[in-house]
């Protein structure tokens, strides 16, 4: 017995739209704030640095995470995918192999992480949190063993430049390649999640996995694809990361884990349908990156920066859920 009290769509929509715009407006306000008070925030150099070093790689990892969270899962091993891809890529370059092979090798390593996740979750029925946590630990060990306990590999000599230049320096119409990769990845994930049959199954899995099972859809297959896709996308991020810094630093992928999860959930909170979305995640990444960069530039004590980020997260959630409550 459910009482039929459907909220009138127009009212509902206006509230949702309002909370959407509120967050976008908040983002614009934050940018304006830093533009005024943070010296050099709007300088070309800072913005380029912001986009290349703070946005692109995190955004790509967060896109993979968006798929997983949309399916109702979580992937704590994205850092491992980033790192192993980066490690294999750099090792192959160091061994004198061509850039194309090295990229393929890096991606293959990341995909292996995804396959292991998929097997743990779908075959052994371990819940995604624990399965990927285990892979996170194992991934760290693999890196330690492969690098004599975590020694970075730097490839700064000129002879290695060609593949890196090919990946980072060149670009179409003056747009740096990493940005183009991000745009392509965002489009691909957008189509996969929001336009394809696969994406529908993913959203349904996130909303009600049993309903998907009862509809005769292969749940394990689609869950596996989600985790493998997330790992592969993180692998792309790993290659961009090591190309940008021309080195492989063990465990550097871990830095993206919480931000990627945070960006995805910020994006979920601000999306009209309260679901993980590509647009929302990208906005979440931008919010986090701009806050970090801006706080640094206005000279906030580094120790206190995380407080700013924490307050931001609460504000975003507060605004969007507060407006939603009003509807109740």
């Amino acid at each position: 017995m459910t009482d039929t009290t459907p909220p009138t769509p127009s009212r509902n929509l206006s509230f949702e739209a309002l909370s959407n715009y509120a967050v976008i407006a908040a983002f614009v306000l934050i940018v304006v704030f830093f533009a005024i008070f943070a010296d050099g925030f709007l300088s070309g150099e800072n913005l380029m640095n912001l986009v290349l070093n703070k946005v692109v790689i995190l955004a790509i990892v967060a896109l993979g995470m968006t798929l997983v969270i949309a399916a109702g899962g979580i992937d704590l091993s994205v850092g491992v995918s980033v790192d192993l891809s980066s490690m294999i890529f750099i090792m192959m370059i160091a061994a004198g192999m061509s850039g194309v092979f090295a990229v393929a090798g890096g991606l293959a390593a990341a995909i292996c992480v995804g396959i292991v996740n998929a097997i743990l979750i779908n075959r052994l029925k371990i819940n995604p949190f624990l399965a990927t946590l285990g892979v996170l630990f194992i991934g760290e060990t693999v890196q330690r063993v492969s690098t004599q306990g975590g020694v970075p590999i730097y490839l700064t000599r000129g002879e290695y430049s060609a593949p890196f230049d090919a990946i980072v320096r060149t670009g179409l119409f003056g747009v740096p390649t990493p940005v183009i990769v991000l745009i392509v990845a965002a489009l691909a994930v957008y189509i996969a999640l929001h336009r394809s049959v696969f994406g529908r199954y993913v959203s349904a899995l996130g909303a009600a996995p049993d309903v998907v099972r009862y509809s005769g859809i292969r749940v394990p297959l689609h869950m596996s694809m989600v985790f493998i896709a997330c790992a592969a996308i993180s692998g792309v991020a790993g290659i961009l990361l090591s190309s940008t810094v021309r080195s492989y630093v063990p465990f550097s992928g871990d830095a993206f884990l919480l931000d990627a999860i945070g960006a995805t959930f910020i994006g979920t909170a601000i999306s009209a349908e309260r679901r993980p979305s590509v647009f929302g995640t990208l906005l979440g990444v931008l919010l986090l990156a701009v806050m970090r960069n801006g706080l640094l530039l206005i000279g906030w004590n580094f120790f206190w920066q995380q407080v700013g980020i924490g307050v931001l997260v609460f504000l975003v959630l507060g605004v969007s859920f507060g407006l939603r409550r009003r509807n109740d």
Binding site: A208, V211, Y214
Partner: peptide, 9 residues
Amino acid sequence: RAHGVATAL
């Protein structure tokens, strides 16, 4: 509600 419809969709 658990198996028939995804109520959030």
